[in-house]
Amino acid sequence: MSRREEFLDQLVARLSGSDRARERLLDEVSGHLTDAIEAATDLGVGESEAERTAVEQFGDPAELATSWNMTQARRQRAGQRRAALIVVTTAAVTGVLAVTQHARGGSKETPPARHGSHAPEAGYTRWHAHQGRSPHRPPPGRGS
């Protein structure tokens, strides 16, 4: 296993968070190492020495993983706070709209039949009454 592969293995073993976030960092680090190695070999440094220098210059994979995990956790918490704020705001706006609508509609007289037809339980109970049986009793011929 090359130094570079060893470094990436050590890094991935310590990363937490979603697969997508981990893959993103690994791809970035891998690209960074490729560019650093290539820049050194372009200057005449041997491949092996260039790889060793690039990996050493990158630092300790454990420190990088710890730092990255902290920033990812912070971003996730911020995302959750934003999502919670959206839910609360939506609920508040919906509530205000409902109250406003109720206040506007409150002065008008609503026909009783129409009002009743919007109540699912009323419809459900009435249908059973029409069938001549209780909504809570099984239909004839069924059940034990």
Partner: peptide, 12 residues
């Protein structure tokens, strides 16, 4: 500084 330092900072 180690090159790796910049990635968590960029993410933040």
């Amino acid at each position: 500084y180690p090159d790796g330092t910049i990635y968590p900072a960029l993410n933040r």
